[in-house]
């Protein structure tokens, strides 16, 4: 008896939730059939269906409230006050300011590239015979293709070796 009552209460709770779902268009055909069958045999849930319908009818009986007259004047006054404040504020002409800033940046970058000394490689070589320098240069250039190679270091080695070799060849 207890189990039957508990099962029935669970079904009723489910049905009552479905009543609201159905009113909002959320019920699919399977649940719709289940609900209809349950309503056919359950007085309590049919009563709940009636209560829900009456509540929804009550909602339809609430007319819109009338806003107080003169609301527009407040809107108009606020819009006018904002327009006045905008007109009174000093205007910055952003287009010329932006163009001047861009031009300034270009000039600064150009000047920096001329004025700042070119960074020298940190590596220096003691004077080596031209053969050794050629070997270092070639080896550094070949080794640079390795996946774990220190590209920057190897290129620096090759550059310095190449320069020294060139200077040596020209009588340094």
């Amino acid at each position: 008896m207890f189990w039957r009552n508990r099962d029935s209460a669970r079904k009723c709770a489910r049905a009552q939730r479905m009543l609201s779902d159905r009113s909002a268009g959320l019920l699919g055909p399977y649940r719709e059939r289940w609900l209809r069958r349950h309503l056919a045999e359950c007085d309590a849930c049919r009563h709940e269906e009636e209560v829900l319908a009456r509540v929804l009818m009550l909602l339809d009986r609430v007319p819109p409230l009338a806003p107080p007259p003169g609301l527009w004047y407040g809107v108009e006054a606020k819009i006018r006050a904002e327009a006045r404040a905008r007109a009174a504020a000093p205007r910055i002409r952003w287009k010329p300011v932006g163009a001047a800033a861009a031009a300034g940046t270009v000039v600064l970058l150009a000047a920096a590239s001329y004025l700042l000394p070119e960074p020298e490689p940190a590596v220096t070589f003691t004077r080596l015979p031209p053969d050794s320098l050629a070997y270092i240069e070639t080896h550094a250039l070949n080794a640079r293709s390795g996946p774990l190679a220190d590209h920057v270091g190897l290129i620096s080695f090759a550059t310095v070796a190449g320069r020294q070799r060139a200077v040596g060849a020209s009588g340094w």
Partner: peptide, 15 residues
């Protein structure tokens, strides 16, 4: 729709 359904449940309880 789901909010509407739950709101109607709540209104049914209140009213």
């Amino acid at each position: 729709k789901s909010r509407l359904a739950r709101a109607r449940d709540a209104l049914k309880r209140k009213l």
